[in-house]
């Protein structure tokens, strides 16, 4: 367990101490500032105005998003939805190179002399999970700052809702990180890992579509792909969101199991 912790620490260190990692973080920061400035804040202002005019309830009811009104601040509600769609993409990109380039370079051999393959696999996965949680914490903090300026009365309740968002977003990205851990075992570079993930994603989508068309609606197939619970999550708020937690947990376990098996079997 200690070695898994050291490997996870190293994964975080690799992000913050390499030029590529710092450029990626700076890029993400710029994108996030743009998202906050041009999407979250204007959208929150729009719903505040719509609510004051009495049309927000009607609009949200038509969209099936009544749960939005249960969020203590509109900034938080918009942040929640933006993250549901944006964070998986970030997870895809940031966690693509868990073991791929280390394998092609031979660096993995130095590690295998000191710890097991499964420890390497688990440590890198854990490190990526921590990085994504840190990303959520930082972005959430920027949104809470916006809440202080726009709706200061809502801040205490917003802070109490923060754990709901953190836990849910962590659950959301876990299967994506697990998928990238799996394809990273097969790939020689981060780019190839991303390509493999896209191919797997599209192939599974087609297969699900084909099976649905061939055998009629099969409800379990709706939950095959990671993130399939997102449309349902948007309609929920507070801890009721955890009702959908088994879906990403099952996705993560299956993907990690397959990835760990491949990691265990592959020649280095």
């Amino acid at each position: 367990m200690n070695r898994i912790r050291i490997l996870a620490q190293d994964e975080i260190l690799r992000l913050v101490s390499t030029r590529r990692g710092i450029i990626a973080l700076a890029g993400f920061l710029l994108v996030w500032i743009a998202v906050l400035n041009y999407l979250i804040l204007p959208a929150a202002a729009f719903f505040v105005g719509a609510s004051d005019a009495g049309i927000a309830e009607v609009l949200l009811a038509r969209l099936g998003l009544e749960a939005w009104q249960q969020w203590p601040a509109p900034e938080l509600a918009v942040y929640w939805v933006v993250c549901l769609y944006l964070l998986p993409f970030f997870a895809f990109i940031s966690s693509a190179d868990q073991t791929a380039s280390d394998r092609s370079r031979g660096t993995l051999r130095y590690l295998v002399l000191r710890c097991s393959r499964l420890e390497i696999f688990a440590g890198r996965f854990l490190g990526q999970c921590i990085i994504l949680v840190l990303v959520v914490l930082v972005t959430l903090a920027t949104v809470l700052v916006a809440v202080i300026f726009n709706t200061p009365d809502a801040l205490p309740e917003s802070i109490t809702h923060a754990p709901v968002i953190i836990v849910n977003l962590w659950l959301l990205v876990m299967p994506y990180i697990a998928l990238m851990a799996l394809v990273s075992v097969l790939a020689k570079s981060a780019r190839q890992a991303t390509l493999y993930a896209v191919i797997i994603w599209i192939s599974v989508s087609f297969l699900v579509g084909y099976l649905q068309a061939r055998f009629g609606p099969l409800s379990f197939l709706d939950w095959v792909l990671p993130g399939s619970q997102v449309s349902q999550l948007m309609r929920l708020s507070d801890w009721q969101t955890l009702a959908l937690a088994p879906i990403p947990i099952v996705h993560t376990i299956v993907l990690l199991f397959v990835g760990a098996f491949l990691m265990y079997r592959r020649d280095l």
């Binding site: 690799r14 101490s17 390499t18 030029r19 590529r20 280390d102 370079r105 031979g106 660096t107 051999r109 130095y110 295998v112 002399l113 000191r114 710890c115 097991s116 393959r117």
Partner: peptide, 22 residues
């Protein structure tokens, strides 16, 4: 590959490189 060999067995693998960024 056993963990009991960690620190007892060491090697210079052919063509293996350290991470160039660190």
């Amino acid at each position: 590959g056993s963990q009991a060999l960690s620190g007892r067995l060491s090697a210079l693998p052919q063509d293996a490189l350290l991470d160039p960024r660190l």
